[in-house]
Simulated assay, not measured.
Amino acid sequence: MSAPEFSLLLISLFTSVGGQFLLKMGALKLAKVPSMNFFSLVFNIITIPELLLGLTCYGIGVIAYILLLTRVNLSVAAPAILVGYIFSVLLGYFILKEPISLLPIVRLGLIVREVILVV
């Protein structure tokens, strides 16, 4: 993988993980949404900056991933993006204080092994 390809991979990876984190932070502010009409729900969502920023990060991540796919095989790009799962679990554990059970730890190990083997 060349430097520009690796840069696209990192941009896609970190903006997607950042987007997930921001969406979670915004969802915590939104709290549990009671059943309401669609327009009220959309209005509540667009008034929370973390949700808008999270969606923007996701959009940037998707654009970078599409550009990456024009340069590398899907069999290389897809496993490499799985590293984002590792960062999401770690952010949840260290920042949001979410517990991690044994099964996610095993999955993280398998993902790391897969990425090393493929990339």
Rank of each mutant, 00 (worst) to 15 (best):
I11K: 09
A3P: 08
N37Y: 05
I86Y: 00
K29S: 13
F87N: 01
S101L: 11
V72H: 01
I45Q: 10
L96D: 10
L74F: 10
P79I: 01
V106R: 02
E114R: 07
L51A: 00
Y93W: 13
V118Q: 04
A77Y: 03
I63Y: 05
I11E: 06
P104V: 09
V89R: 07
A3G: 11
A31W: 03
F14Q: 00
R107P: 01
P104R: 06
I66S: 11
T15E: 02
L110G: 02
A78R: 09
L108N: 06
T56I: 13
I66C: 10
T56G: 14
V106M: 02
E98N: 15
G84P: 04
I105L: 15
V76K: 12
M25T: 12
L82R: 01
V62Q: 08
T15Y: 02
I46C: 13
V83D: 03
S75P: 08
S16I: 04
P49M: 08
L30Y: 00
L22T: 07
L96R: 08
L55I: 13
I11C: 10
V33K: 06
L8S: 06
Y85C: 06
V106F: 04
L68P: 04
L69F: 11
K24D: 04
A31L: 10
C57G: 09
I63F: 03
I100Y: 01
Y85F: 15
T56A: 14
I11Q: 08
Q20L: 06
N73S: 12
G19K: 00
I48W: 12
T56D: 03
S2T: 13
R71E: 11
V115N: 05
V62N: 06
V115A: 03
L96Y: 10
V112T: 13
L53T: 14
L67Y: 07
S7P: 05
S16Y: 03
K29M: 02
L55P: 00
R71G: 07
I11T: 12
G61V: 01
L96E: 09
K29C: 06
L8R: 05
M25E: 14
L117F: 12
S88F: 04
V62Y: 08
K29P: 05
R113A: 14
L28K: 14
L102A: 14
I11H: 10
G18K: 00
